[in-house]
Every structure is written in structure tokens, then in C-alpha cells.
């Protein structure tokens, strides 16, 4: 009799654990082997806010800690993408360091810096990027879309600061063009156009592209050559160096340098997490 009860309890515990951890949509989609790995990671990783236990236990508690749920989804997504345990643990550690950083916040001058998103949005995202950085040409338009019409709409204000990488040919000219477009009120359209035509970049084309977007070509050319634009670009570069920008793109979330994975999914996830934190949405309804 006692053996039967023992087996029933054992069976019930497996069922309980499975239903507890599989509540997130991303985790439910995993295959059996992937579920095992995800479960192992969920049992070894901890949320850095709103729950002191391991993630699998946090998911069983009521109300469910929103961060634990978010991190569980993140882990299952990574497992689904084929990442191994060490890679996932490292990524989570970098993310925690970025989100929990209590050090001095970066001093970023946002005067006259172009931004997208609602002016009252509580999360301030600043990107330092180079006009000739291939990675920036992909992630910046994707983030722009997320902020203007995607998941981050109303949550994030997205600022762009030009940070030319000296070893990139024509990064300086690209920077002059970005700042000229900003001064003429056509920054985001111009940036998206230049990044969209990344492989066709040519210094001579920069004023022509501005003209195609409705900016005055002659004025644009004159601004690109003006000492004032050069000074502004040098100032942007110096500020980036002081803020320890050592690669492009580098992101700052409400003044904290983001050290996590630079993928669109991860960026959207951490920006939503920051928004939840500011809005005091610590627990899931």
C-alpha cells in the first residue's frame, strides 16, 4: 500500500513540476529533450528581483513574479534556438549585471538629439552607432520600428548618437551627414534611408539621398562641410569614449550601459522589463 502511495506521490510531483514550469508559451513549445535542459536551467537560475528562489520555484508561487516569467520565457527561447547551458547562463548573468547595475549612470547630453517614441515614455534608450557599422544598419531600423509601431510603442524613447569608428572608411562623412540631416529636421528618415542602402554607400551620394527625402541638397552639402558639424561630431565621439563606448552599437538603458546580447528579441525583452519595473508591474495578474 505504502509503495502505491509513494508512486502516486512521485507521479503527482512530476505532473506538478511539468505544469508549473510549462505555463509560459515559449516553454510549452519545446521538445522533450529541450524541456529537460530548460528545466535544469530554470532550477539553477534565480530572478534578480521580486522572487528570491530559483526560477522554477518562482513560477509556482502566487502571484507569479513577472521577471521570473520573463526570464523563463527567455531561457526557453534560447533553448529552442539550440543554445547550450553555459551560453544561456552567461547571457543571463550579463543581463542581470546590466539591469541591476547600481554604479554611476552615464552622463549623456540629449539636447537637440533626435529621438523617436512618445515624449512621455518612461524608458530612455540611447544608442551610440556608426554610420558605417553593418550591425547598426540592421538593429537600428528594427528598434525604430519596435518603438514606433511595435511592442515598445508608448514605453520607450529612442535616442540616436553618432559615434564614428575611426577604422571604418567614411564613418566621419557618414556622421557629418547624420548630424546635418538632424539639423535640417529629417534625421530618422535619412538614417533609415542610409542604413537601408548600406551597400550602396558613397560619400558623393549623401547629399543626393538627402534631396530625395525632401531636404535641400545645397544646404545639406554646406552643413556637412561646416566646422560646427565637425565640432558636434567630435563632441559626440568624446562623450561616447567617456561613457566607455568600446564598440558600435552600444546601448544605454536609462543611463546604464547594456551588456547583454544585442539581438532584437533580447533588446525588446529588457526594454519591456525596464518598463515593467518603472511602472511597478512586478507581478503577473
Amino acid at each position: 500500500m505504502s509503495r502505491v502511495i509513494f508512486h502516486l506521490v512521485l507521479l503527482a510531483s512530476f505532473f506538478f513540476v511539468d505544469t508549473a514550469w510549462a505555463q509560459t508559451p515559449g516553454c510549452q513549445q519545446l521538445e522533450a529533450e529541450q524541456k529537460k535542459l530548460a528545466q535544469k536551467i530554470l532550477a539553477s537560475q534565480h530572478a534578480y528581483d521580486c522572487c528570491d528562489q530559483s526560477l522554477d520555484r518562482c513560477l509556482q508561487a502566487k502571484p507569479i513574479c513577472a521577471l521570473a516569467y520573463r526570464l523563463a520565457e527567455n531561457i526557453c527561447r534560447r533553448v529552442g534556438e539550440g543554445q547550450d547551458e553555459k551560453t544561456i547562463a552567461r547571457a543571463l548573468s550579463r543581463r542581470a549585471t546590466s539591469m541591476m547595475s547600481t554604479g554611476k549612470k552615464a552622463v549623456i547630453d540629449l539636447t537637440d538629439v533626435p529621438f523617436v517614441g512618445e515624449a512621455q515614455a518612461p524608458v530612455v534608450l540611447v544608442e551610440y552607432a556608426c554610420a558605417r557599422c553593418p550591425f547598426c544598419s540592421k538593429i537600428t531600423p528594427a528598434l525604430h520600428q519596435a518603438v514606433t509601431e511595435g511592442k515598445l510603442k508608448g514605453k520607450v524613447r529612442f535616442y540616436f548618437k553618432t559615434f564614428p569608428i575611426r577604422s571604418h572608411p567614411f564613418s566621419k562623412e557618414g556622421g557629418f551627414a547624420f548630424l546635418s540631416a538632424a539639423e535640417m529636421g529629417g534625421f530618422w528618415d535619412y538614417l533609415l534611408y542610409v542604413y537601408g542602402h548600406f551597400d550602396m554607400f558613397c560619400v558623393k551620394k549623401l547629399p543626393l539621398w538627402a534631396q530625395q527625402l525632401g531636404l535641400d541638397q545645397q544646404e545639406f552639402s554646406d552643413r556637412m562641410k561646416s566646422p560646427g558639424i565637425r565640432e558636434r561630431l567630435v563632441a559626440c565621439k568624446k562623450e561616447g569614449i567617456v561613457n566607455r563606448v568600446d564598440a558600435t552599437p552600444t546601448f544605454f538603458l536609462n543611463g546604464r550601459k547594456f551588456l547583454g546580447d544585442l539581438t532584437l528579441a533580447e533588446m525588446i525583452d529588457v526594454l519591456e522589463e525596464e518598463h515593467d519595473l518603472i511602472s511597478q508591474k512586478l507581478y503577473r495578474k
Binding site: 550591425f135 569608428i165 575611426r166 564598440a247 544585442l262
Partner: peptide, 8 residues
Amino acid sequence: TMVPCPVF
């Protein structure tokens, strides 16, 4: 190419 560009 989804690799950040480091400062030399």
C-alpha cells in the same frame, strides 16, 4: 553580419 564593431 550581426557582430558589433569594436573600437580599434
